[in-house]
Each structure stands twice: as structure tokens, then as C-alpha cells.
């Protein structure tokens, strides 16, 4: 394991109108790891991902991406220096995020969605960006969908375009917010397959999910969050087989007895 983690979150705290949503979160994700972030609804999972791309400004704590501070940094002498929008934007391509609702640009074709951020943000030539975009879409099985606009794509196809759009920026880390939740249950296996292909190319990922079976079959490590804190983190097998935290135990009991989830997670573990 390399010394510098791809993602290091320390003491991250976020309050909304005085209500603490993230409470001193610590998390390291190392190169090539897939970490599943699980926890009950409203515990702050999405808020954590949003803070990691600085869409939400944390009130306290630090984020480091591949050793570089994001958003604010601790200077010698204990002074905290806030970064400018320009500095933050420069680091943002390093963190790819795929939202629950994908948020593609509806006025551009699938290919253009993937090409445009490369030319605008990374300054790549159109040719190079198009080559890279087409290659990614092809690898994600969208070779015959590149010229379509998002409204003419299925949910699963939109998700893959969104993944390609983020991957084209050559991120060090990919974040997924509930990749299975906006899609039909039958597609869970498909999403799993797509994320596995990313794992095969060594992509580091932090995946929010409430489907334990999905987490079990995908992740190397699982982090359990409750009420804004990460209560337990470790190798996926250990976390699922021998949870130490009572709240994690009862959370696992709850989702395992939920028939709907048992049924939908039957596919990926096959």
C-alpha cells in the first residue's frame, strides 16, 4: 500500500443551519481500493460526497486528494488557508462524481457530453478529446449511442455516459452516489459489471450504496456511517461477517430482513 492515500479525509465536519450532518469524519482510500459507504438514510453519505467535490463547503476539517489539499489547507503555524475557486477548480477533475440522477447536459449528444469538459477544462484539442471520449463510450458499450441526446437514452445508458464524462478527466478517484437507486432492480447486475470494469483498470472508487449485497460483491472495504460519523471501517468480509458496532449490527439485521433488498441483491452475488 502506497504511503500517500488517493483520498484522505480528516476531521470533516458540516453543519446545516446548526444541525451537524457530518461529524468529524475520518476516511482514507488507497490507490486501487473500492470502498463502499453504507448507512441509514439521512446519515450524511451524499453530503460527504458533495463535500469531497466542494459542492458543499465543510465547516471544518481537511480533504486531500493524492496528497494535494482540496478547498483549504493547514499552513505551517496552524493557519488555515482557504483556496480560491480557481484553485479548487484546478483540482476538481481529479475527483470524478457520478450523481444519482446523472445530470447530463441535455442539449449535447452523449459524445459531446464527454468531449466538452475535456476541451474546456483540460484544454485538450477537439481531436484528442473526441478520440478519448469515443474510446471510453465504446468500452462502456455505447458505441452505437454516441450521437444520441440524453433524452433518447435509457437510465443505464445515461449512467454510463456520466461515468465516461467523469473518467475522461483522468480522475484519481471516482465517487458514486447510489449507482443502483435510480435504475430498475434488474439493472443492478449491469451496474455492478460496469463498476467491475473500472476496478479492472485500477480505478479507485468510493461508492455510496444501501444495498448490502451490492457492497459485498463489489467492495474491498466497507465504511459504515451513522448520524454523520463513520463508526466502523474495514475489509468488506470482516465488516459483514463480524460487525463490532451495535448500530452496524442492527443496521445489517434490518437490511438483511428487508425482502426487497434480499431479492434485488440476489443477482450480483450469483
Amino acid at each position: 500500500m502506497s504511503a500517500v492515500p488517493v483520498l484522505r479525509v480528516s476531521n470533516l465536519t458540516k453543519r446545516f443551519h446548526g444541525v451537524t450532518t457530518l461529524d468529524q469524519v475520518y476516511l482514507d482510500v488507497h490507490a486501487g481500493q473500492i470502498v463502499a459507504l453504507i448507512g441509514p438514510s439521512g446519515c450524511g453519505k451524499s453530503t460527504l460526497l458533495r463535500c469531497l467535490t466542494w459542492l458543499e463547503q465543510p465547516d471544518d476539517g481537511f480533504i486531500e486528494v493524492a496528497g494535494k489539499p482540496l478547498g483549504r489547507e493547514l499552513m505551517p503555524g496552524g493557519v488555515v488557508r482557504r483556496h480560491s475557486r480557481r484553485q479548487i477548480d484546478a483540482l476538481r477533475p481529479q475527483v470524478g462524481i457520478v450523481f444519482q440522477q446523472f445530470h447530463l447536459w441535455p442539449h449535447m449528444t452523449a459524445l459531446e457530453n464527454v468531449v466538452r469538459p475535456q476541451t474546456v477544462v483540460l484544454g485538450r484539442s477537439r481531436d484528442e478529446a473526441t478520440r478519448r471520449g469515443a474510446e471510453l463510450l465504446m468500452r462502456l458499450g455505447l458505441a452505437d449511442r454516441m450521437d444520441r441526446h440524453p433524452h433518447a437514452l435509457s437510465g443505464g445508458q445515461k449512467q454510463r455516459v456520466a461515468i465516461a464524462r467523469a473518467l475522461a478527466m483522468d480522475p484519481a478517484l471516482m465517487l458514486f452516489d447510489e449507482p443502483t437507486s435510480a435504475l430498475d432492480p434488474e439493472l443492478v447486475g449491469e451496474v455492478l459489471a460496469v463498476l467491475r470494469t473500472l476496478a479492472d483498470i485500477g480505478m479507485t472508487m468510493l461508492v455510496v450504496t444501501h444495498e448490502i449485497g451490492f457492497a459485498a460483491s463489489l467492495a474491498d472495504r466497507i465504511a459504515f456511517m451513522d448520524r454523520g460519523r463513520i463508526l466502523e471501517e474495514g475489509p468488506a468480509r470482516d465488516i459483514l461477517a463480524a460487525p463490532k458496532e451495535p448500530r452496524l449490527q442492527s443496521f445489517l439485521d434490518l437490511v438483511r430482513t428487508d425482502h426487497r433488498i434480499v431479492r434485488t441483491t440476489a443477482n450480483p452475488t450469483e
Binding site: L55, R85, D89, A90
Partner: peptide, 25 residues
């Protein structure tokens, strides 16, 4: 608003978000 957030997360500066994402639509 999600489109704007997605653009921001990709690293598009505000003027590019206006020019490439918002105004054309």
C-alpha cells in the same frame, strides 16, 4: 440545478458554465 453542480464538479469555471451549459439551453 443538478446540471450546474455536475459542471462545477467537473471543474468548469463559472463563465464556462454560463457559455457552454446554461445560455445555449
Amino acid at each position: 440545478a443538478g446540471q450546474i453542480e455536475a459542471s462545477t464538479a467537473l471543474g468548469l469555471p463559472p463563465h464556462a458554465i454560463w457559455l457552454k451549459v446554461v445560455l445555449p439551453q
